[in-house]
Design a protein around this nucleic acid. Structure first.
Lengths: 118, 118
DNA sequence: CGGAATCCCTGAAGATACTG
DNA sequence: CAGTATCTTCAGGGATTCCG
């Protein structure tokens, strides 16, 4: 059953809380990032790219991103099954946000390293 | 003990993963958001503003934000103890990112509501 | 007021096995 | 290949209590 605690999205007022609700977790942003870099991508490609994720988690996170309209899923009835994931048009609206997150991540990383190395 | 799983930050290469590691969780972004809106703020003020958070969580999240250099803590030895939290200079580098997150949250919220309410 | 410490429970997520 | 289903574990986080 995919009935989780995600159905009370309507009651949220704060936009930040809203975004957090949709994007929190270790993997959502990583998946979006991978799809922003290149899309569509196959399941296995995502799995290899997102280091540390398990297939189970990848599936569940992709499903949630799909539910939220950020990612679309296309199945090709080939003999070895092929499934491709793409950013939807709405998913692409996350690009500026993801860009800022990436920039900030870089900054913090550098900051951390100068204070820890040498 | 504050020994959590957060000490392997140095091994992370992906900037997005980096940011996620530092900001994941329901509360970090909410706290930053609250402090961006106004800073410094007292513990109780934060607790009231961030609906749903428990004092325990607020404390622990503030400690982690402090460790990561995003937030600073100042104690005033008044009779009823006063503790104020502020964004550090580095914490203020999150402002553009937070702004994008907020903007995106607003977008998604509106999008959701038109498809759910008449 | 602003915490720290403790107890406890739930649910997130890993491992494994099986299917189309 | 791309999943689904099940079982189990473990730690995040709530409630409560106590302290400076």
């Amino acid at each position: 059953m995919s009935t989780k605690k995600r159905e009370k999205k309507e009651e949220i007022s704060c936009p930040v809380e809203y975004a957090v609700t949709l994007l929190s977790g270790k993997w959502k942003l990583r998946i979006l990032h991978a799809l922003i870099k290149e899309s569509p991508k196959r399941f296995k490609v995502l799995e290899r790219e997102i280091t540390g994720i398990t297939p189970t988690m990848l599936t569940s996170q992709l499903r949630e991103l799909e539910e939220d309209g950020l990612v679309s899923r296309e199945i090709f009835p080939t003999v070895p099954p092929t499934v491709e994931y793409s950013l939807t048009e709405f998913g692409q609206t996350t690009i500026p946000m993801m860009q800022e997150i990436k920039v900030w991540g870089l900054r913090h990383k550098e900051r951390n390293q100068v204070s820890e190395n040498t």
